[in-house]
Design a binder for these strands. Sequence first.
DNA 1: TATTGTTATACTCTATAACTATA
DNA 2: TATAGTTATAGAGTATAACAATA
Lengths: 142, 142
Amino acid sequence: METEDLDRELINHLFALRDRVKAELKTVLPELGLTDAQTDALWRLSDGPEITARRLAERLQCDASTATSMVDRLEKHGLVRRIPHPSDRRVKLLQLTSQGCELRDRVIRHAVETSPFGGLDRDARLRLRSLFREAAQHEETP
Amino acid sequence: METEDLDRELINHLFALRDRVKAELKTVLPELGLTDAQTDALWRLSDGPEITARRLAERLQCDASTATSMVDRLEKHGLVRRIPHPSDRRVKLLQLTSQGCELRDRVIRHAVETSPFGGLDRDARLRLRSLFREAAQHEETP
DNA sequence: TATTGTTATACTCTATAACTATA
DNA sequence: TATAGTTATAGAGTATAACAATA
C-alpha cells in the first residue's frame, strides 16, 4: 500500500526535524546548566502558578514519581517553586522562578532562531502552519 | 517581529506531533520489552551490517560510551550483534538480529498505523511531504 | 473510596575521563 | 598522532510499589 510509505516518510521527516532542533539546543544547554529532560520540563511550565505536578507528568508523559524527582532537581537549581493549592491541600502548583522564566525564554529563543524551517520562505511556512493546524484538530477523533 | 511567532508556532506543532507519536508508542513498548531510548536506537539501525557504533552515537546525538552501553543492553536482549569490520580491526559493525528486525518493524508499523497525520487527506499529506522535503534540503546551508 | 503527591528501590540512560587496540 | 571502541564512575532519568494526606 503506497499510503503507508507516505505516512512513514512523513514520520521520518518529523523525527529528523525534531532531531535538528535537539542538536541545536545541545550546543547551548551545557552552558545553561540544563539537561535535555530538564529543558523538556521547563518548556512545559508556564509563567503563571497554574500547573499541578500531575499535569506536568501528563505533559511529559511520565509517571508522577518521575515528575516529583524532576521538580526536586529543578527546585534545587532555583528554577521552580512549589506552591500549595489554595483550596485543595493535596495539590502543589508549580511556578517558574524569574530565573526559570529567563532560562526557558533563552532556550525557546535559541530554538526559534535556529529553526529547522528557516529554509522555507514565508508563504511556505504559512502553508505548513495551516497543515499543522489541520492535523492538530484531529487530535481526539479516531 | 511576527515571523518569530510563526516559527515558534511551527516548532510547537512539531513537538506536539512528536509527542503524539511518542504517546502511541508508549502504549505498545512495555509489552515489547522496550524503553523509549532503546526504541530510538532500534529505529536508527538498518537491516544490513553497515553501521558502526560511532555512527549510531552520531545519529542518537549521544556520547560514544553511551552508545556502547546501549548496544550492550540491546545485545543482552538479543536484538543486536557486534560484527568485526573486515578491513579496520578497530571498528565494530552493528547488525540487527532477526528478532531485532522484527521488533523494529512492529514499532515502525504501529507508529505509521497511528500516525498523527491520519486526519489529513491524501492531497494534504502530499503537500506536507513536499514542504518537509524542501525544509530538509536546507539542512547544511546556513 | 479515590486522588495528589511523596518515598524507597532498582533499573536504564548519560557524559567525563582514562584506557586499549588499532590505524 | 589520531581514531574506534571500551571501562569505571557518578549522576540524571525512569517506573513500580507502598505510603501519607486530603478529598
